[in-house]
Design a protein around this nucleic acid. Structure first.
Lengths: 143, 143
DNA sequence: CTACTTGCAAACTTTTTGCTTGCGA
DNA sequence: TCGCAAGCAAAAAGTTTGCAAGTAG
């Protein structure tokens, strides 16, 4: 499944006229492979063995490219750095308030919320974000 | 209502053993008065007439105090600075993707989501956050 | 009185930018 | 070849910290 997802993603980039490079390929495939919604720093550390000279700017640049093409979503949390999620199916996140881990979960779509919110606020609503916060299994055990 | 809310808040701070200062009072009452979920910079600009020497550090310090005592909530969004919300009733936010404005809306509690998420992820869930994104009325007209 | 607050500036973190060199198509 | 991409370092932007001086209780 991951292999197919990579092919689809590569096709999407090609169609958008985005040039492929080893670094770009590595970042993308790492994102698709992991389920951990890594930060820029985690990506950087994971790939520095293969690309000792790669700079963080390259990672940021590529993440923006992926975001523009619609291959990844940026998750932002107050204190910490952004995390990047290459799972583009509609889903939600459970965020650990202790260690920052992010885990996906699925739930029936909340389209009705968007409608209600639009009515209540006068906004033209186009998307929504739902997250639950708490302790992940690891942190629960350790505490 | 705002006046009572201020009294309640002051009492809460007193009970927590927090000393009152003119700056602290001004920041708190500004937060309770406004509905606009201001950023630190907005608070700073609003109060610089009354407190020409007040530094942003003072605002950050006080916001942390208020947060610790449970008087305000910090809202964080990727690109921009944090916003601070002194409405502690359970409610949700509509965020303008163009100008960053944040408007409250109410919706039946999503307690069920927390349960489902806990079951699906193994997290011990303690809270959730729901936001809708789109264009606010002003930005809709201008575009 | 004295511990908590303020004000100020410097430090820190994360992300962006400018510019030169390199490389994919 | 030609322009996009990478690497690097410096700059932004937001937030935090350390310390001296002031003040609430």
């Amino acid at each position: 499944m991951s292999a197919e997802a990579l092919q689809t993603a590569l096709a999407k980039l090609r169609d958008a006229g985005v040039r492929m490079t080893p670094q770009r390929h590595a970042i993308l495939s790492y994102l698709l492979k992991t389920m951990s919604h890594p930060t820029v720093d985690e990506i950087y550390k994971s790939l520095e063995e293969k690309f000792p000279n790669m700079s963080v700017a390259t990672i940021y640049n590529n993440l923006r490219v992926f975001k523009d093409v619609g291959l990844v979503r940026e998750l932002t949390y107050g204190d910490a750095s952004s995390r990047y999620d290459a799972n583009m199916n509609e889903h939600y996140h459970a965020v650990c308030t202790n260690c920052g881990a992010v885990k996906d979960f699925y739930y029936p779509s909340l389209a009705q919320v968007e409608k209600e919110a639009a009515k209540a606020t006068g906004f033209e609503v186009s998307s929504h974000r739902l997250e639950v916060y708490g302790l992940c299994e690891d942190c629960r055990i350790k505490q």
